[in-house]
Design a protein around this nucleic acid. Sequence first.
DNA 1: CGAAATTTTGATTTCGTTCAAGAGATGTGG
DNA 2: CCACATCTCTTGAACGAAATCAAAATTTCG
Lengths: 245, 245
Amino acid sequence: MTRQPLARCRQHSRVVVPLDCARCAVRDLAVCSALPPPEADALERQVSSHDLQANAELARAGQPRRHAYSVTSGMLRLVRTLADARRQVVGFVLPGHFVGLSGHPTHRHNIEAVVPSRVCAFEIDGIRDLRGRYPAFEHTLLDRACRDLDDAQDVMLMLARLAPVERLASFLVRLRGQMGIGADDPRMALPMGRGDIADHLGLTVETVSRSFTRLREQGVIALPDPHHVEVLDPAALRELASALR
Amino acid sequence: MTRQPLARCRQHSRVVVPLDCARCAVRDLAVCSALPPPEADALERQVSSHDLQANAELARAGQPRRHAYSVTSGMLRLVRTLADARRQVVGFVLPGHFVGLSGHPTHRHNIEAVVPSRVCAFEIDGIRDLRGRYPAFEHTLLDRACRDLDDAQDVMLMLARLAPVERLASFLVRLRGQMGIGADDPRMALPMGRGDIADHLGLTVETVSRSFTRLREQGVIALPDPHHVEVLDPAALRELASALR
DNA sequence: CGAAATTTTGATTTCGTTCAAGAGATGTGG
DNA sequence: CCACATCTCTTGAACGAAATCAAAATTTCG
């Protein structure tokens, strides 16, 4: 139920930048890799790259769905808001991931940048076209949709049945997975604020903050600053995040 | 956190029945319709039909994923359970719907019959094969996966931010949609028990029961018996279920 | 460096859970 | 087909955990 700072809609919250797929940092992660090189070029012609500043809105709920996006750098959040400002962050989108594909003709949530980010925008029509022509592309999309569905079900269990500290632990474990952080590396960055975490976990900012404090007091994590976590006791964290596979 | 009656594992909880796709009640709803008639026959050879009695287990979490299922009659539930018996009903599966497709090699939840049901079981390998050979089939699967993902996100918002009465209202509206009940028909059946509803909504049985009572007291619904609801004030119900699109 | 925003901590209230018991439905065997 | 036993659902009372309200501490950024 956190009130989010309005996305700054001033002129340069969103800037088109030159496209350079050959040097794309997430090329092998991204859906693009599902296409053979010549067709990847065809895709490239339909794609535009955009720089977003923090809190910029890439799409708004209810708008016609014209593009899908692949994140190159930074982090996006998917946000659903009720009339009375109750908010839910459905998920965070990290580099290499794809967002915005759906049968619905309109967006079902806002897509916003958590931090300054860069995305590739794909024309929906072009995607439909490529889906029809390159089975491998459609195959990749279906695999990803299945994985997203599995993740969504993890989140559902968390929201339905876990206590606040367990939700936070589960979130940290899940995020480490998404970020590809190895079990050996204790450090992790939390680009999003407490409000976003609260709205993702179905809690208030205060409860999230208290949960962080409890994990710290129990020696499970250290908090050099609000945006950096060090996992001191990975086993304990995993134990709390029982929801995880 | 409701303890569920154990699935009766006696001999005939699951029975193979003769297959008759031509007379399938859900033929045009089901994924089968994505294949042209000759190939539908190929599919038919890989499919087996099963009768399940109430609470029979079709799959158990952790088991290798060998089949996916299309429901012909009755109702299934997808259940995730934690070590300490906390339970979540991820979703209910109605006739014409498809379940069990995922990249994961093992099942992530139990698949159980809510009431006596009939399903068609598809070999996972056969599906993979058909996906490769018939783009229209894969296309249908992707569309369905996207829709399931949208639904999952509706549920996430409900779990994260709605009050008990709102959750129940949202559930009733959603179920009516899934069941294809028209706005003109006030009656609906609730095949599942209060425990399943509670575990779907992230509440206790008591709170679900009280929420039903409150909706009844407010004149929004009537409850001829615990398994039948009559929607007296559809507008009020929709208003409460604000989560809905 | 200083102002604004974010995060943390504390006190109080509220709502859903828990515990307990009674009412009603279901289904089995006589 | 009915009586009885069992299971499910509903209702009530007490408790407790998270929300809310309030304010101090810390971080961020111009």
